[in-house]
Design a protein around this nucleic acid. Structure first.
Lengths: 252, 252
DNA sequence: AGTACATTTTATGTCGGTCATATTATCGAA
DNA sequence: TTCGATAATATGACCGACATAAAATGTACT
């Protein structure tokens, strides 16, 4: 369990907590955060650990430090929102509809084009890898968890097949989007599974070395994904409303 | 001078050096790097400083550490190549044609779409900001340095106007591409300046709230940029060849 | 011999403290 | 009032020790 192990480590935990305060806006842009010693006592860790946490957040563009002047929150424009951990934290801490909308919008821009490039230039070995991922998705049945993992490999496979390191790096964004879908799949069971034939269509176009068709097929999958996310979120919204009504009745 | 100040700081320097070894492939994927104590003596800094450097590289996805097992280079798929510093390092350390090609390819995918969204949804205040950046580009004349800075603001302005945090984060990639163009502008003076009317055309389409036109106009700018980069790189290649010939003559 | 379990080893993780450095803030003299 | 010297202070770097987890080794038992 590498992820859990990481979370258990104190510096990762502290980094996450501070990131939470920043991403949620409690510590807004330009804000000078408490001195390292004060942070250390607030989080009950040593100054060394605080410094390691801060250096992680510095690396992700959230904060910057200057001697004597202190450490301040950088403006959003410098935040590396395409970073894997930051995406994970942002969704886990604030699973908003806005986040989902924006993430889906970026996927719609990047993935169809990547898919076209893959159809044009992907090696047969790349395509075989994607095919394997597809078969595992098919074999997963209705288990969202078992479906989600090869699904990510399918999309990462396409990005990797482009041979473009920056598109490969975009895999972190896709991963975040799929995690989001997975989180919402309890509200909309079976929705992921419905995407299987769309994946088949994409793969067929790629095998046929048809860039335009591949782009369109990926675009249709993005449409479906967007519809699923929106309906899951509105359902969540509805449940929240119902819960509020129930609590009002209970109060009365 | 925040950038210079940062570079002077020892942990940033060490992080850059180690990143160089990893990005250039000297320390390949899966490689277990020397123990922290050994790194400390190699780089003549304390273990504390090494640890801060490593935590930066961990944050960027280049390496991962496990107690007792050591620290290893993660596979490329986990590298956050869209990170601002990593982009800067990668180009500074290995200014290859492949890097330029890939970076340009990603811009071609993202920026035209962002431009269309900007034309559709950007606020008048957003557009005014882009207009101001354009005017400063115009006023910069033939000075590449003075032209480059508002150029970045122009493109960042479009990304910001989309209201999408992930597209905003893509600004780091655009920044890297413009820095690359600037570095190559000594080989191809005046090339950046030729892009001015293309920027005007983009702005006109955005003001006209014409998404399709804006997308096409941005696409034309990307075409021009790609041509400029390729010609500068082939010129550099030619100069390298000439230098090799000269040295051969000298040897003979 | 081979396997399951306990023990040792070791590299990263955490701690507290000290000193260095840069930059802000303060104070004093012209 | 302004400019320059000085003091205060928050981050940056260093050190040495101990904690922890996991790999490697050793040991007992089948």
């Amino acid at each position: 369990m590498p992820r859990d192990a990481e979370l258990r480590q104190s510096n990762t935990h502290v980094a996450r907590e501070i990131a939470k305060l920043i991403v949620s806006g409690v510590w807004h842009e330009g804000w000078t955060l408490p001195r390292e010693i004060e942070l250390a006592s607030q989080f009950s860790v040593s100054r060394t650990s605080i410094r390691e946490s801060l250096s992680v957040l510095k690396a992700k563009g959230l904060i910057a430090a200057r001697q004597k002047a202190g450490t301040h929150v950088r403006e959003r424009i410098n935040w590396n929102m395409l970073d894997a951990e930051l995406l994970e934290w942002a969704w886990a801490l604030r699973p908003t509809e806005e986040f989902a909308r924006q993430l889906t919008q970026v996927r719609r821009i990047v993935e169809p084009e990547a898919c076209a490039i893959c159809a044009e230039r992907g090696s047969d070995a790349d395509l075989a890898r994607i095919e394997r991922a597809y078969r595992e998705m098919d074999a997963a049945g209705m288990d969202s968890r078992a479906y989600s993992e090869p699904d990510l490999r399918f999309h990462r496979g396409i990005l990797t097949a482009t041979g473009n390191d920056f598109l490969v790096a975009f895999g972190a964004t896709v991963e975040a989007a799929l995690r989001m879908s997975f989180d919402l799949s309890t509200l909309n069971p079976g929705a992921p599974r419905k995407s299987l034939p769309y994946h088949r269509a994409i793969l067929d176009e790629i095998w046929a070395r048809n860039p335009d068709g591949a782009r369109r097929a990926m675009h249709r999958l993005m449409d479906l994904t967007e519809r699923n996310i929106i309906s899951a979120l509105s359902r969540r919204h509805g449940e929240a409303m119902a819960a509020a009504d129930a609590s009002r009745e209970h109060d009365a």
